Simulated assay, not measured.
Amino acid sequence: MSTFPNVYTHRKVADTASKSCAICYKLSTSVLITEGKQDFFYVCPSHLKDKGFCTPIVDQAAIDAQKKKDLDDEIARVKKEYEEKQRKKKEKEEGDKSNEKADDKKEASTTDKKDQAKKPDSTSATKEGESTKAEEEPRIFQLHRTFYQNRVTMKRQAEADKRNRERFSNPAFFPSVPKGLP
């Protein structure tokens, strides 16, 4: 019998498959499971945030890659906006100098309307970015020593009980009645 590693992955199950939390016995759809599926238990999401229960294992390389990707996207967006503004400014300068002020006002109002139309799009994009960041919670956890030792002890006890049940169901396990004279 080998013990399992103290690395648990957080998974969600359907509402119909929810079971009681191993800590507080409330119904939960969150499951912590080891890599080889040797051990699993249901736990409330609030317990995962508890520093006394487990600590998240953070993949720093993945976080750095995500930050770099977000920064590159932001740079590309800003460059695009700057080029657009420069293009509009150039078009405005190239326009006839003899245009009336009314035409200028019309252009200014249409540009303002376009800018106002663009603003809700940019705010919705930031809201979507915030929601994805909120959904990205740590998925890999390490239990604290006492909780992990409790899981290992429970697993060993379950295996010992299983072995005993198998032995007791075998009739050869018990001694036979003596047949000779004493």
Score class of each variant (00 low, 15 high):
residue 62 A to F: 03
residue 48 L to R: 00
residue 146 T to I: 15
residue 152 V to K: 11
residue 171 P to R: 02
residue 118 K to S: 00
residue 51 K to Y: 10
residue 35 E to V: 01
residue 73 D to S: 12
residue 44 C to D: 11
residue 181 L to M: 07
residue 91 E to Q: 12
residue 49 K to L: 06
residue 41 F to E: 08
residue 168 F to N: 11
residue 96 D to G: 02
residue 148 Y to T: 01
residue 13 V to E: 09
residue 100 E to C: 11
residue 120 P to M: 08
residue 149 Q to G: 09
residue 145 R to K: 15
residue 105 K to R: 13
residue 109 S to K: 15
residue 26 K to T: 11
residue 122 S to W: 12
residue 14 A to F: 05
residue 67 K to T: 10
residue 162 K to M: 14
residue 76 A to S: 04
residue 180 G to I: 08
residue 134 A to S: 06
residue 180 G to Y: 10
residue 14 A to R: 03
residue 6 N to F: 06
residue 182 P to W: 04
residue 46 S to A: 15
residue 109 S to M: 14
residue 34 T to N: 07
residue 108 A to D: 15
residue 82 Y to L: 12
residue 118 K to E: 08
residue 66 Q to K: 15
residue 80 K to V: 02
residue 100 E to M: 03
residue 169 S to I: 10
residue 127 K to C: 02
residue 77 R to Y: 08
residue 148 Y to G: 00
residue 148 Y to C: 03
residue 154 M to E: 04
residue 58 V to L: 05
residue 134 A to V: 00
residue 143 L to K: 06
residue 20 S to N: 08
residue 171 P to L: 00
residue 70 D to K: 04
residue 92 K to E: 14
residue 166 E to I: 04
residue 99 N to R: 14
residue 15 D to I: 03
residue 74 E to Q: 03
residue 23 I to R: 02
residue 101 K to S: 13
residue 2 S to V: 10
residue 182 P to E: 07
residue 159 E to H: 01
residue 120 P to N: 13
residue 182 P to D: 09
residue 139 R to D: 13
residue 139 R to F: 02
residue 179 K to H: 13
residue 18 S to W: 07
residue 129 G to K: 10
residue 181 L to Y: 08
residue 30 S to G: 01
residue 40 F to E: 15
residue 50 D to W: 01
residue 124 S to M: 14
residue 162 K to F: 12
residue 139 R to T: 15
residue 149 Q to D: 12
residue 114 K to D: 06
residue 17 A to W: 10
residue 7 V to R: 13
residue 67 K to H: 05
residue 137 E to T: 05
residue 120 P to W: 05
residue 15 D to H: 07
residue 133 K to V: 13
residue 148 Y to L: 05
residue 174 F to E: 05
residue 147 F to T: 04
residue 103 D to C: 15
